[in-house]
Amino acid sequence: MIWSKRGISVSIDALRAIQSLLPDAEIVQSDAPADDSYGGAYGEAPCIAAAECVEGRTLRAHRVVGEPEVRFAGFLDGIQRARIECHRNGVPIVEGRVAAAIRVRVNRRFTTWGHRIPIVSRRLYMPLVFLQCEGRTEIDGFDIVDTSYDDRTKALVSRHPGALRAVAFERVGRDRDEAERNLAELWCSAGDAEPLFIDGGISGSGRVASASCAVGVIKSHQTLFADGDALEVVMSLRRGERSSVFAPPSTRRHSVISWYLRLRDPRGHDAMFGLVRIEASVGGDVASRANEISRWVLAEAAPLSLPDSRWDRMAYGIRDCEQFLRAIA
């Protein structure tokens, strides 16, 4: 990778690979366009979903009993980078990079789990149908991911560059999820695995969702699993308080239990400040498990993850993991 004169990172080797296949593709030197320039974001829209309360009949606030306890041995996170490297007649060709790693804590300092090589991959995401090069799976060492078809509907994606870009970016995100999932399953397959702090949910993998050592901590609240009074309870949680445990709907995912936890005092901040949702495996006394895991998560409130903008919800171990992945990927 080099830096162009305009300060934008350009993958020379990726461009060479693309141009060997599509010599007339035009190089994109500017930064990625704003999400709305394509007529709509490719992320989920904020929504409220119903969830069954499994700790009592109604969702209420509980003070986490006991002192915070440092128990997490590992922190799992992944990163993704997607960028339109060039286009051919408006058809975007995206280079995607994903990486995932577990950072373990040894003497209060982080190091890569088992000194294994983290998962790092670079692929080209291209709608081969629109580029008239169907069947290609690789160029100059780059794996090609065909983004011509929607995974769910199996229908040809719209020729709209925004739709094509959205599909490519989504595929990159899915590849990242898969990398994280693989690592989490590897961790959980150990017989006496110690608690693993996973950035995000754990319901995507059956093995991870059922592992008592895996704890998912979700920082973003695109979907809120509370409504009405319950939502008010969640929004008004104070520092060191958690919500009752509930079971998120598991239409396409594996069953887990979940609850909200306020890590920091929200006074003077917005309602989501310091609010995380925790996912853990089903089983045992949910109240005592939620209390115990909450104590573990609260122990990760320091050191702060500043200067990351999500510092109020991000554990330092996750920030370390992200920094590590950014350095190597």
């Binding site: 982080f110 320091a302 050191p303 702060l304 500043l306």
Partner: peptide
């Protein structure tokens, strides 16, 4: 990886004695 010393102050609520109990050392 601190950008400003203030972040460390905030990390420990301005109480140096609590720094020893932090779960991790900074990179």
């Amino acid at each position: 990886d601190l950008v400003t010393p203030l972040h460390d102050v905030m990390s420990h609520d301005g109480a140096p004695e609590s720094a020893g109990f932090a779960s991790a050392e900074r990179a």
